[in-house]
Nucleic acid binder design. Structure first.
Length: 290
DNA sequence: AGCCAGGCCCAAC
DNA sequence: GTTGGGCATGGC
């Protein structure tokens, strides 16, 4: 795909961006640190940068940003060279359930996040709920992460924007050092995993992910999907298991059958399908019950 | 107040 | 290889 973009006033502006909605992307459960500002744009510190992202019509603005950073980092981070319309056509052609889910979360894109960040965040995510996960990660970053970016007076929380702490920093901690973060039993997982990564380097495949302490099949799938851009990876948590039963009639306990179904029916992008379904199920479930 | 959450580890089969 | 108990914490 040919990306039309330009630098302007320290920003990069991308034109003709389709299938891109900041709420869908940042609130669909694939990431936990993007902060919504009052104007509807989103802020984060990551990849050694601090940026703000906004969309106006089909125009995406990343600030501050230059062409070098855009080409090197954000083009892939936001998966801008993938045609999601074409993927949705294939996924929904013979699947009215998927059609509803993809109509609902039409602007979702699977982010290619920093691998170490994905490892840390999805270890924390296990047997946990999304509001609390966000709090844990924010406390962890504020306590042990590197501050990033300029303090902008218009942003009250600007000075608190910090990156995910490095393996080296986390490997040097004791569990009691993490007590203020309130990670529960996950604190030990995080420290041991940081030690393993420091010693052996970053994992490169599923087998190496599963060897990390606190990483099982579901967390490994999330790391593959959101930190390695494996769009066929199909994480099955309690929400996905429930929806595969409710919507597709599969046995709620049989994860093997769900993996087979996803592989055979979801056109080689089970991870994208999963994210449409996950967002659809969660938003409808929570709005139904309050 | 109690059930639940983007599950995993480990021991016992 | 599979199954089940235990697990910190706090959102709702």
């Amino acid at each position: 795909m040919d990306l039309k973009y330009r630098e302007e006033n320290g920003c990069v502006i991308v034109e003709d961006v389709k299938d891109f909605n900041v709420v869908h992307i940042f609130e669909c459960g694939q990431c936990f640190r993007w902060k919504k500002l009052e104007d509807g744009s989103y802020d984060m510190a990551a990849m050694g940068r601090r940026i703000n992202v906004s969309v106006n019509g089909m125009q995406l603005t990343i600030k501050p940003c230059d062409a070098g950073d855009f080409e090197k980092i954000w083009k892939d981070y936001f998966d801008l060279e993938t045609d999601y319309s074409e993927i949705k056509e294939r996924l929904c052609a013979h699947d009215s359930i998927m059609r509803n889910a993809a109509d609902f979360g039409w602007g979702i894109r699977i982010l290619k996040q920093d691998l170490w960040e994905a490892i840390v965040e999805f270890i924390i995510s296990q047997n946990n709920n999304i509001p609390r996960i966000k709090g844990c990660i924010e406390r962890l970053c504020n306590l042990y992460g590197e501050p990033i970016g300029e303090h902008r007076p218009e942003d009250i929380e600007a000075e608190l924007m910090c990156d995910i702490p490095s393996p080296k920093v986390l490997a040097g901690l004791k569990e009691e050092d993490l007590a203020p973060v309130r990670l529960g039993y996950r604190a030990g997982y995080l420290i041991k995993t940081a030690e393993e990564v420091l010693e052996k380097g970053m994992p490169e495949n599923r087998e190496e992910l599963l060897a990390l302490n606190g990483v099982g099949p579901k967390v490994a799938s999330c790391i593959e999907l959101f930190g390695m851009a494996h769009k066929d990876s199909f994480p099955i948590d309690v929400w996905v298991a429930r929806l595969m039963h409710e919507l597709y009639g599969l046995d709620e306990k049989n994860k093997k059958a769900m993996e087979v179904y996803a592989r055979e029916k979801f056109c080689g992008c089970g991870g994208i399908a999963q994210q449409y379904l996950f967002y659809y199920e969660r938003e409808n479930y929570t709005s139904k019950n309050d």
